[in-house]
Design a protein around this nucleic acid. Structure first.
Length: 425
RNA sequence: GUGGGCGUGGUGUAGCUGGUUAACACGUCAGGUUGUGGCCCUGAAGAUCGAGGGUUCGAAUCCCUCCGCUCACCCCA
C-alpha cells in the first residue's frame, strides 16, 4: 500500500457509519428540540480570526494550528475549533438583528496538529451549540441541559459535570494579583514543567495534574473567590438553578471544581466540563464549554453575550457501550438476471422500484447462479427475484424472502412486486 | 516536542533460545451436474514477515537506523 490516511485521521468505513449516523442524528434531534438551528461554515478561515478569538498565547494557537498560505498570499488556517467561525458568521450575516437569543448548532470537523492518542486526533468532529444575545444564568443552564439530554439519549450513563466560574477579565486581574502574591514564594517548589507553565500563564497551573502542585494550590486563591458583583449574582443564580434541575438526570453528579480553567482565552464567567464518572482514560472530557461574553465584540461585532459548548463525536462514540441500532441498511431486493434478456428487464424493473424507494441492486450476470445466491446471503438482502427467460415468457416472477424462505409469485410488474415487498417488510 | 509498547496475507494470530517450500482461524474466490442461499466438503488466490543496513554459510527470528501504529505526558473534544 503506497498511500495511507495521514496521521491522526481515519476513514469512516460503511460499518463505522452506522454508529456515526446514530450519534449525529441524536445530536441534530436534541439540538432541534431545544430550538437550535443548524449552521455550517467553511473549514478554513483567516488565521487572524483564531489568533484573536482563541488567544495568541494558547497552546492551540501556538503549536497546534494547521496554517498555510494560499496562492493569493492569504494566511489561512484549518479551523481548530468551532466557536470562532460561528461568531464570525453571526456577525457577517447580521444575526445580531434577529430576535434574541439566537440559537445555533453545528456538526463539523476540526483540525489540530497534536500527537494522536486515545480520544485525540488531528481531524476530529464536534457537535457544538452556541446561544447569542442572552446573558442570563438560565442560558448557561440550558446548554448544559441540552448537552446532558444529548448524552443521555445515546445511552451514556454515569456522567460527572464539573462547573466553575472564572469571572470576567476584570475580576481575573484582581485574582491574578493575589494569586501571584501567594505563589511567588512557592514558585521554586513547583516541578520544572509547572514552573515554565507558571511563567507563561499563571492561571493554567490551577488544573495541573501533578500531586505536588495540587498540594501547593490547596490554600491558594481561586478565580471564583474574586467575582465581581455581577458575576457573583450570575453564578449564584446559575448554581441554584442547576442544583434544582440536575436531579432530572439520573446518575449525573455535579461538583464545583474551583480549579477548572479552560485552555481557550475567550471564556468568562461560567465554564463546565462533562466526563464519564468511571473514566480511566486520559482524554475523558466529552463535552465542555462555557460563557464567552466578550468574544463577539472582540472579533469586531456588537457587544453580545454568548455561551456554548463543543462535544467530540469520536470521544462520545468511545463511550457508547452498545449500539442499539438495528441493521436497517440491508438491501430490500436483489435481482438475479438469468439471461441477457432478463438483464435488460432487471435494469428496468430495478429502476422503477428505486423510484418507489425500494433499495434494489442487480447481481452481476458474470457470476454463476450459485455465486449470486451466495452473494444475496452475504450482503443480507431481504428479498430476491430471478428474472430469466421463463419469467419473461410467462410474465410471472417469484419473490423469495430470504429470512422466512416464503416465496410469492406475482406478475412481472413493479407494482405487484412492490405490494409483496410491502407485506413482507 | 518527550517517553513506553508494538509492526507477519483483507482481518485476528502462531512462529521469534536463527536452519529446507512462513503456519492457523475468519474472510474472499471457484467447484461439489444444468435456475434458489445460509451448514458441510474440496480446491484456489492472497505476505517482498513495516523499510534500509549489519552480524552469519544461513534471519520473520540477533544488532543498528529510519518509518508507521499505539498508549502516556503537555493540551484539548
Amino acid at each position: 500500500m503506497n498511500f495511507k490516511a495521514i496521521r491522526g485521521t481515519y476513514d469512516h468505513t460503511p460499518e463505522d457509519m452506522e454508529v456515526w449516523n446514530f450519534v449525529e442524528s441524536a445530536a441534530r434531534r436534541t439540538a432541534s428540540i431545544f430550538g437550535y438551528k443548524e449552521i455550517s461554515t467553511p473549514i478554513f478561515e483567516q488565521t487572524g480570526l483564531f489568533k484573536r478569538a482563541v488567544g495568541e498565547g494558547t497552546d492551540v494557537v501556538q503549536k497546534e494550528m494547521y496554517n498555510f498560505t494560499d496562492l493569493g498570499g492569504n494566511e489561512l488556517t484549518l479551523r481548530p475549533e468551532g466557536t470562532a467561525s460561528v461568531c464570525r458568521a453571526f456577525i457577517e450575516h447580521g444575526m445580531h438583528n434577529k430576535p434574541y437569543p439566537v440559537r445555533l448548532f453545528y456538526i463539523a470537523p476540526m483540525f489540530r496538529h497534536e500527537r494522536p492518542q486515545s480520544g485525540r486526533l488531528r481531524q476530529h468532529h464536534q457537535f457544538g451549540v452556541e446561544i447569542f444575545g442572552d446573558s442570563s444564568s438560565e442560558t448557561d443552564l440550558e446548554i448544559i441541559l441540552l448537552g446532558l439530554t444529548y448524552l443521555e439519549s445515546l445511552g451514556i450513563k454515569g456522567l460527572k459535570l464539573k462547573v466553575n466560574s472564572i469571572g470576567t477579565s476584570k475580576s481575573r486581574v484582581e485574582f491574578k494579583k493575589s494569586f501571584e502574591h501567594y505563589m511567588n514564594p512557592l514558585k521554586n517548589k513547583l516541578s520544572e514543567k509547572d514552573q515554565k507553565k507558571y511563567e507563561l500563564n499563571p492561571i493554567r497551573i490551577l488544573d495541573s495534574k501533578e500531586k505536588s502542585t495540587q498540594d501547593l494550590l490547596l490554600d491558594s486563591p481561586k478565580p471564583i473567590d474574586f467575582l465581581d458583583k455581577d458575576s457573583k449574582e450570575h453564578w449564584e443564580k446559575f448554581i441554584n438553578l442547576l442544583d434544582q434541575s440536575i436531579k432530572m438526570f439520573e446518575g449525573v453528579e455535579f461538583e464545583i471544581d474551583k480549579g477548572l480553567v479552560r485552555g481557550l482565552d475567550y471564556y468568562s464567567k461560567t465554564v463546565f466540563e462533562i466526563q464519564p464518572k468511571d473514566s480511566n482514560k486520559a482524554q475523558s472530557s466529552i463535552l465542555s464549554g462555557g460563557r464567552y461574553d466578550n468574544l463577539v465584540e472582540n472579533i469586531g461585532g456588537p457587544d453580545t453575550p454568548a455561551a456554548g459548548f463543543g462535544s467530540g463525536i469520536e470521544r462520545v462514540i468511545l463511550n457508547i457501550k452498545e449500539n442499539k441500532e438495528e441493521d436497517l441498511d440491508s438491501l430490500q431486493l436483489l435481482i438475479i438476471p438469468a439471461s441477457n434478456e432478463g438483464l435488460v428487464v432487471s435494469i428496468k424493473i430495478a429502476q422503477q422500484l428505486r423510484n418507489k424507494n425500494v433499495s434494489t441492486s442487480i447481481c452481476s450476470s458474470d457470476r454463476s447462479f450459485k455465486a449470486q445466491m451466495r452473494y444475496a446471503n452475504q450482503i443480507n438482502a431481504n428479498n430476491i427475484i430471478v428474472i430469466g427467460e421463463k419469467e419473461i415468457s410467462t410474465n410471472k416472477i417469484t419473490i423469495k424472502n430470504l429470512s422466512s424462505k416464503i416465496e410469492k409469485t406475482v406478475d412481472l410488474t413493479s407494482e405487484d412486486i412492490l405490494s409483496v415487498l410491502d407485506s413482507n417488510g
